[in-house]
């Protein structure tokens, strides 16, 4: 049984608000780079970048990070940590204000891996995190700077984010396990 908690309009608004909050927090878009975490974070990152482009008429570099499959519907064992297996960016992060973008923030382990990977590539001025959904249940001291929607959830539930670029629509659903 799936329940839509964020519909297409609400998702558009959430990304719009996150975009404005990024401008507010960073006093503009200078030195900003956006990194999307695969798979859906990449599309969200591009949408934020295109909004910044519309508003500020500035092209903000967008890259992506591929983190080993680590899905919240699969029971993860305590031994395995997600790792960044590929990065796709044609710019340096050194001295930049990095905005990491992911669809769902859960344990925080994916974000930790992404941060390590970014740090290995250079020393950014700062790293901020933007997520469409924060569902709680953190296992690491990680917090998002920009949140589309807080969705308190049970660990048995699955949060499914669909984006129109690769799915049939824009939506966030909760599925009972």
């Amino acid at each position: 049984m799936a329940k839509v908690v964020v519909d297409a309009m609400a998702m558009q608004r959430a990304l719009t608000r996150i975009t404005y909050e990024i401008i507010e927090r960073n006093k503009g878009v200078d030195d900003l780079v956006i990194l999307g975490i695969k798979t859906r974070g990449v599309y969200l990152a591009r949408r934020i970048a295109s909004r910044l482009q519309q508003l500020e008429n500035v092209t903000v570099p967008v890259g992506d990070l591929d983190v080993t499959p680590y899905r919240d519907d699969i029971e993860h064992d305590a031994q395995g940590e997600p790792e960044v297996t590929a990065t796709n960016m044609d710019f340096s992060v050194a001295g930049k204000k990095v905005i990491l973008v992911d669809d769902v923030l859960y344990t925080g382990r994916t974000i930790r891996a992404a941060m390590s990977a970014v740090m290995d590539l250079g020393r950014p001025k700062s790293i901020n995190l933007a997520v469409l959904v924060d569902r709680g249940h953190r296992e690491l001291p990680i917090r998002a700077d920009f949140v589309g929607k807080n969705i308190p959830s049970s660990q048995r539930e699955r949060i499914k984010v669909s984006v129109s670029e690769i799915d049939d629509r824009d939506a966030v659903e909760i599925q009972q396990a």
Partner: peptide
């Protein structure tokens, strides 16, 4: 009208953030 939703969400973000 969804500008009113935008307003609501700005209020939520402010209180939660």
């Amino acid at each position: 009208r969804d500008l009113f939703d935008e307003f609501m969400e700005a209020m939520t973000a402010r209180r939660e953030g």
